[in-house]
Write a protein that binds this DNA or RNA. Structure first.
Lengths: 199, 199
DNA sequence: TCAACCAGTCAACGGCGTTGACCGTTACGC
DNA sequence: GCGTAACGGTCAACGCCGTTGACTGGTTGA
């Protein structure tokens, strides 16, 4: 006869928690956000637990797994909406300028953390969701011509590649280049996919 | 008084090896190549050692570290030279077609392994070297106009982004898209950076 | 009052990369 | 011919990791 689900702890269920549980849960999440931002996915569950003053097992108890905790802590939301909602004819250059703005160091952190954890299925799904809900939803409806979704996806690929070389690989040519020139060149290459010359 | 270099095993030194050492070293390397190709950097030293019929410690003894072994096993050489040496005016589309060719599954494997291990300094350096020695060296001398190196580096960023979305992220839009159309659109976007309309 | 359940700790498991101590064997100088 | 040094290799262990199960108190509600 099949085992009738042994008395393993059931799902944490998020809703009916006592105040104490809610508090430490928040403390763990805060510590995780900071450490994941600092060290990326390399931040260990044990370090997060220590930072929150809690036993490592409790971290898993509350969030299920390190991956689930990571997914909850990483937020892809950003000031990107304003960039994408601006004039469609210049969104290419604005996108590049946005991501290369040295006053936005958190973007670099977030990208590195996500890229480092891209081997997790959940992270990949989140990235695809982000592409669809942020980029495609904002740009495709205002575009003309065929293959609108495909062209947006390819523009996202361009952005992704730029971030990969600049942030991760730290390509010496791109790092040493004049940012203004880079924005012009790469921004126009992106623009060509979104609003090509022949419309 | 400072310890005069304790009798720790010195460098493996590669050259003066006895036949037995040379043989097992080759066996380890072969096993590593296969497992790294199969499972990427997740392939464990212990698994590689088991595949080679050897103690895990010996793997480290021979190659110094898992990272060093990985770097020795990953080869970025490929049929790319022929693509890059062809007509400069159509290299964009040929590049995309080359990487999307379904008859070249090893490209995918190599890219995934490299991307997964990109957090290692040695891997990043190897990638930058590859960009400079393969792409820049082949394309920049034949190009015209300003910022030739920068434009090649940006084209590499485009290729990198495409591989990232197609291979790693498995973006549903790109995966479902017609390859021919994709080659046209993205190839032309790359081409614009290498040989822009206004020369 | 008492049973159910939440919050939390503790020790442990299996896996990882890596290291140091320890042998047999091979090569070489005297 | 023989001692000795270096090579080739194994073994057990270290310290780390994510995760789990058993267990202890405290809180809550019937």
């Amino acid at each position: 006869m099949t085992k009738t689900s042994p008395p393993a702890r059931p799902a944490p269920d998020e809703r009916h928690l006592r105040p104490a549980g809610r508090a430490t849960r928040a403390a763990i999440e805060e510590a995780a956000r900071r450490l994941f931002a600092e060290r990326g996915f390399d931040a260990s569950v044990r370090a997060i637990a220590g930072e929150a003053g809690v036993d490592p097992a409790l971290v898993i108890r509350h969030f299920g797994s390190k991956e689930a905790l990571f997914l909850r802590c990483v937020d892809t939301s950003s000031g990107l909406g304003a960039v994408l909602d601006g004039p469609l004819e210049t969104v290419g250059r604005r996108l590049v300028a946005y991501f290369l703005d040295p006053d936005r160091p958190l973007l670099r952190q977030r990208y590195l953390a996500l890229a480092q954890a891209a081997h997790l299925d959940g992270v990949r799904e989140e990235m695809n969701r982000h592409t669809a809900e942020t980029y495609v939803a904002a740009l495709a409806p205002r575009m003309t011509g065929p293959d609108r979704e495909l062209r947006v996806a390819l523009a996202v690929a361009q952005v992704s590649g730029l971030l990969s070389l600049v942030y991760r690989q730290e390509d010496p040519v791109l790092t040493a280049a004049d940012t203004t020139r880079l924005v012009e060149l790469y921004g126009d290459a992106i623009q060509q996919l979104l609003t090509p010359a022949g419309l």
